[in-house]
Design a protein around this nucleic acid. Structure first.
Length: 470
RNA sequence: GGGGCCGUAGGGUAGCCUGGUUAUCCUCCCGGCUUUGGGAGCCGGUGACCCGAGUUCAAAUCUCGGCGGCCCCA
């Protein structure tokens, strides 16, 4: 039994373990073990991310260790991270002459190499990415997949371009990539430009994707940074223009971590456990034979025939020695989208019983009608249902506010407050919650205006989000 | 950043205040019988006092430190 999803913290904590996503008992704070089932979800989710990126990025791998002098080069950047860097100080018993940092992110590892790689305008643009672990000494509450000391699945892309405009185009392109990725996972998001005081250390500006967790707090699930030529100046990354001059490159970087999987779990799951979109479910179909004494043979024969027919999918035939009800609960907990039940009645009529994870009804189909096409049709229909459900759930937690009082009440009641404000007054909102920044585009499920009268000074304002955050 | 609570089998717990027998109960796990259309039942079995130091004839229980976890507030 799982705690109800209304008690979100407890539900999440238990589900992560019961569904065998992670083992949280590893004896170091903020570090967790990926179990086979969870790791399979990770692999399926990240394959999609790779597929999208591989269209015009190249995957690379940079070292985990960064020498102190390299890490410390960009002063604004390091100020943002210095209190949470892990240091390697010894090699065996010998103290190291130059301390080595466990990367908190890889800008300072990658950009010195960019300096070596980039000589002329013909070398640009460069678009690379890597999926690696990064380390941050978090002092706040750690939580599996959400706040970690070792982020195990940090996808970071880094690009270099000739001009600021080209970098800005890349920011837009990265936003499109993230939209495609989260649409694939059926996770609703809002896109904000973070306020000046909350941008990535060293960036010109930061665009962030936020989603809403069931308890009404926002979760940042992706960021895109325009670095302009800030790092290029620090790391002296220049190229020769067609005219023979030398100019600094303009860069971007953008990241997604395993928080995407946290949001997948949190947005779709219910009181019974995980609900996984068909495409990322480690088990897409489960077949449960119902074995009455003396009638096992035909039932097993039909079950195995169905199993063979569905082998183009990730399918499990559960012949274990448990009662059918126990198996239903088990596979529902693990989010299996489609379940077949086959008992003596079905065997006699050459039928199967079908049930979808997101609905509770059961129905029968003739065995001969079951085909790959039918499964895919069901998967597609389920995707639409999950989409409406996810949007309804998120929509109910977003409130447009016309006064500061409204903002206070909404954030206090664990809602995301949207409010018009001008640049001068934006910071005043900080006393009510985290200021997510200026909304960049209106999702089709939300009915608000991106521009309006500033709630504080009644001047010309833009739409800003305020919420409690993870 | 500030405050509070807690650590007993794989998981959840009782015992701790008031130190003293073989450490309670549920679940999981293993073996057997039996059963199977929404978490079956019976019998038998394995398995624990976070680590270190101190106080004491005696520590799960008291004290200190470490490590780990949870909650609230900024």
């Amino acid at each position: 039994m799982l705690p109800p999803k209304d008690s979100f913290s407890e539900w999440y904590h238990e589900l992560i373990q019961q569904a065998e996503i992670m083992d949280i008992r590893y004896p170091v704070k903020g570090l967790y073990v990926w179990l086979p089932f969870g790791f399979k979800i990770r692999q399926l989710v990240y394959s999609k991310l790779r597929e999208i990126l591989d269209r015009d990025h190249q995957e690379v791998y940079f070292p985990t260790l960064i020498p102190e002098d390299m890490l410390m080069k960009e002063s604004e950047h390091i100020k943002g991270f210095e209190d949470e860097v892990y240091w390697v100080t010894h090699g065996g018993l010998e103290p190291l002459e130059v301390k080595l940092a466990l990367r908190p992110t890889s800008e300072t590892a990658i950009y010195p190499m960019f300096k070596l790689w980039i000589r002329s305008h013909a070398d640009l643009p460069i678009k690379i990415y890597q999926i690696v672990n990064v380390f941050r000494y978090e002092t706040k509450h750690t939580r599996p997949l959400i706040r970690l000391r070792e982020v195990t699945s940090f996808k970071e892309a880094h690009t270099a371009h000739r001009t600021y405009e080209e970098a800005e185009e890349q920011v837009k392109s990265a936003i499109e990539i993230y939209k495609e990725f989260y649409d694939f996972l059926i996770i609703p998001y809002l896109i904000f430009k973070r306020p000046e005081w909350d941008k990535f250390p060293g960036a010109d500006y930061t665009i962030a994707f936020d989603t809403l967790m069931p308890d009404g707090r926002t979760l940042q699930i992706g960021t895109v940074h325009n670095l302009a030529d800030n790092f290029a100046k620090t790391f002296d990354i220049k190229y020769e223009t067609p005219e023979g001059d030398h100019a600094y490159v303009h860069q971007t970087c953008y990241g997604i971590s395993e928080r995407c999987i946290a949001s997948l779990i949190a947005i779709h799951g219910d009181d019974l456990g995980l609900i996984l979109p068909f495409e990322v479910a480690p088990v897409q179909i489960v077949i449960i034979p119902i074995l009455y004494k003396g009638k096992e043979e035909g039932v097993l024969e039909l079950s195995r025939r169905l199993y063979e027919r569905l082998k183009n999918f990730r399918v499990v035939l559960d012949e274990s020695d448990e009662r059918p009800g126990a198996k239903y609960y088990k596979w529902e907990l693990k989010g299996v989208p489609i379940r077949f039940e086959i008992g003596p009645k079905e065997y006699e009529n050459d039928e199967v019983v079908v049930s979808f994870r997101d609905e509770r009804r059961k129905f029968r189909v003739k065995f001969d009608e079951v085909s790959d096409d039918l499964i895919l049709k069901w998967a597609k229909e389920m995707r639409e249902r999950l989409r409406s459900r996810a949007i309804e759930s998120v929509k109910g937690k977003v409130v447009f506010c016309e006064s500061l009082d409204d903002v206070a009440k909404s954030v206090e009641g664990r809602r995301l407050a949207l409010v018009h404000v001008c640049e001068k007054c934006e910071r005043e909102l900080e006393s009510y919650g985290s200021v997510l920044g200026q909304m960049q585009e209106k999702p089709d499920w939300l009915n608000v205006e991106l521009e309006g009268e500033c709630v504080v000074c009644r001047g010309k304002g833009y739409l800003v989000g305020v919420a409690k955050t993870y």
